[in-house]
Amino acid sequence: MAKKKIIKKKVTPPPEEEKKEEIEEVPKEDVDAFDLKEAPVSEEELSEIEQEIKEAETEFDEEIQEERYYVVPLARKFQRVPRWKRSKKAIIVLREFLTRHMKPEGEVYISQELNERVWENGIKNPPRKIRVRVTKSVDGVVRAYLA
């Protein structure tokens, strides 16, 4: 067998002076461009859409008939399906659980926050159980939130 030649090259790091110059060139105004402390606080500064959402939230708070907290076991059901369908099945199991326990007259809504928590670790690895806050309105519509 032929011997392999090993060629050693010296790698010199770039001078530190150039790096310092690049850091100093960033203006201070750009650093604070995304400061959220200056977000609009009063209702006058809110847009029309934001005001409508705020009004809808206040109306919804008055309509709540009952509120409950549950720890929903998801693992028993989603372990019976293939791995690539588990989070999807977990959402279906959650809806079935809420339908069974809250007896809705309308639909069952799952909040965006709760949905993101179930899908947080991808489709193959949802949480085994999850704590939810469930509200039922006067109209019979059930809404689930992350507790």
Score class of each variant (00 low, 15 high):
24 E>Q: 13
83 R>S: 09
34 F>S: 11
64 I>S: 10
66 E>H: 07
136 K>T: 03
96 E>F: 00
129 K>P: 07
36 L>M: 13
74 L>K: 03
123 I>T: 09
85 K>V: 06
58 T>R: 14
10 K>H: 02
134 V>S: 04
17 E>V: 13
88 K>R: 15
61 D>W: 06
108 V>H: 07
135 T>A: 10
108 V>Y: 04
34 F>Y: 05
54 K>T: 01
123 I>Y: 05
94 L>V: 02
110 I>M: 01
144 A>Y: 00
94 L>T: 01
83 R>G: 05
104 P>W: 07
36 L>V: 10
97 F>N: 04
127 P>H: 06
40 P>S: 01
72 V>N: 00
124 K>M: 03
144 A>R: 02
19 K>A: 06
25 E>N: 12
28 K>V: 04
74 L>R: 02
23 I>V: 09
105 E>N: 07
15 P>K: 15
122 G>V: 11
51 Q>K: 15
81 V>N: 03
34 F>A: 12
140 G>P: 00
142 V>N: 04
101 H>P: 08
80 R>I: 06
16 E>L: 14
19 K>W: 02
60 F>D: 13
70 Y>E: 03
70 Y>V: 03
100 R>S: 13
106 G>N: 04
53 I>D: 08
39 A>H: 13
95 R>Q: 12
112 Q>C: 08
5 K>E: 10
